[in-house]
Write a protein that binds this DNA or RNA. Structure first.
Lengths: 339, 339
DNA sequence: GTGAAAGCGCTAACAG
DNA sequence: CTGTTAGCGCTTTCAC
């Protein structure tokens, strides 16, 4: 029992390899009867086409890449599910790359994609990504790119985001309505579009309500939960007047709660907290957390769908198009009114 | 500026393509000077090797597959990080496949691997996986497989697990010490090795403490959080005597808490809860959760390391070998003594 | 409707 | 140390 390949099938059926190839691809040029025979034999012999050979021949890999900063956050975990779902349904394979929030790694990864390893890329850029030459270059090589969640403004391609400005605005308004007057915004990327938008929404809400926007109300957090907790503790200690916190990243929730616990700042009595948060655990936190939850799964699904559609029509340009899926503000106890 | 490939480099340098190929692979056969020239030109021309061609030629794809049930759980998210970290470091690529806990999908996915798409597989089997012919068959084709977390007993290959029996035993003992007498164990896979082990540990603890093991103290949960919550509510309502719950899956924690909330069963006063749980949010739950946390990242890392090592030595057999990394029981308020 | 044949770009004996 | 020469298995014009 030697290797069974297209040639073997051809011999067995007294057909040429090209006919087999076409039959397997369900080409219209092949007679139904022939197709039938080919498919049957293939099934019987347990034929598995060699993907590398077919990628080489066709210059299409049937593979897409997902480039994300991390998978700790439940946002990205959920998004992967969405992406994988549509890819699997359409016969595509999914390669995962983590940038660990580092621009250099992101550049290297995308640079390697110039080789044709993948047909397209779905990406959420790293917190460090300011320059976008690496993304532009990839697109220039004909590799379509779709952003999801964290997009780079200066790249004209499809992006799937949520209504970041508006959500941050709503969250801020909500806190203000609950009588907060000194609001901290926790950010991990001031320069990223998404970070700026959330800041913008926050700022707009403050302004509309006659509150001052202070630059040092924006806290620049990093990747390390411990360090972030310390930073927050220090900030809260230094500024006892703070009575509201908006966390723009799921990961910062734990540090925020821990900092409040440590300083005996009661949530929501002393400080109210709202966070961008996608895990189901929001409802069982202490206290239950008021969240802005993003449609993570849907966003992944949509991004992959856009990409695969572009891959189907070689001419489809995948131009600047922004699909905005709404996030949902769910009010829970972390922002409850006092009495 | 046409396509730059190995042939182009060869012409440019007046060398043969094989020399270029070897130089790029840093073969010992090539003179340092030549290597230098090749690498320089490659860099200058921005040469990117075609991975499909090289996979085809060498029958090695430099790609491994990660097959997991889902990515909702933070366990798998963390494990992916570990796997990706070592793969990236060693120049491997990572394909992700989700089985959605379905055996059939798992079979199809593994079946497709017979094509040589991947050099090896790291897998955590689905909850439905009873028969393992698909895994055996893949191994028979020479594709090494490493299990992590959820292994199939009857496949003789490397596996990376945690001390499931012992952890469940510890958790159960802990509850018994805190004066629980009627303990529920929430499971999602009674027949999976991992499920059985956790049950065994639970059972052993009960027995050693003179408590009866009742088969209907094992609650078989499914994938849907809502349904699980209802099931738990029904169970708790039907059996008011229950004073301890051991959840063997992170995902079940929320349902457990919600069920207790709904029935006004106070945790830990009325019911104590301990869960296998890997997210940092354990400490900020209401009440904070006593957890058994698995070294998820390390487990992923170890599994990938074993696999890649096997890929390096073609002869290395990757025999039945069980690397057991210990889980940690962290006691928090969900199992606090009353008074 | 089917076949012949020329690659796709790289690897890997085998020579020397 | 470098070159020659077959492929790897499939796709895809171009013929018939």
């Amino acid at each position: 029992m030697d290797k069974i390949n297209i040639k073997r099938l051809a011999e067995e059926l007294n057909l040429s390899t090209s006919t087999i190839s076409r039959a397997l691809q369900d080409s219209y040029q092949i007679g139904a009867a022939t197709k039938q025979r080919v498919l049957e034999l293939a099934k019987k012999l347990n034929y598995q086409p060699n993907p590398h050979a077919s990628s080489l021949g066709s210059s299409r890999s049937k593979t897409i890449a997902v480039v994300i900063p991390e998978v700790f956050d439940s946002y990205f975990a959920l998004a992967i599910n969405g992406i994988e779902a549509v890819a699997q349904a359409q016969g595509y394979h999914v390669l995962i790359y983590l940038t660990h929030e580092r621009l250099q790694l992101e550049q290297e990864i995308l640079h390697a994609f110039r080789s044709g390893r993948v047909d397209g890329v779905v990406i959420s850029v790293s917190a460090e990504t300011t320059s976008t030459a690496h993304i532009q270059a990839l697109r220039a090589q004909g590799v379509p790119v779709v952003f999801f969640d964290r997009a780079a403004d200066d790249v004209d391609t499809a992006r799937v985001t949520t209504n970041d400005t508006e959500s941050a605005y709503q969250a801020t308004c909500h806190l203000i309505e609950r009588r907060c007057t000194t609001l901290l915004l926790l950010s991990i990327s001031r320069h990223l579009s998404i970070g700026r938008q959330r800041i913008a929404g926050y700022r707009q809400a403050l302004t509309e309500h006659g509150l001052a926007f202070r630059d040092d109300d924006i806290v620049d957090c990093g990747q390390d939960p411990e360090a972030n907790r310390e930073l927050l503790e220090a900030t809260l200690r230094a500024r006892p007047g703070i009575d509201g916190i908006i966390s723009t990243v799921e990961m910062l929730t734990e540090s925020t709660y821990q900092a409040c616990y440590a300083l005996h700042r009661r949530i929501p009595q002393d400080v109210k907290v709202v966070s961008f948060y996608n895990s189901r655990s929001a409802a069982i936190l202490n206290p239950s957390l008021t969240t802005i939850s993003q449609p993570a799964f849907e966003m992944g699904k949509t991004a992959a769908t856009l990409l695969l559609k572009a891959l189907r029509n070689p001419k489809s340009t995948l131009v600047a198009e922004n699909v905005v899926l709404p996030s949902v503000l769910t009010i829970r106890n972390s922002t409850a009114s006092i009495g």
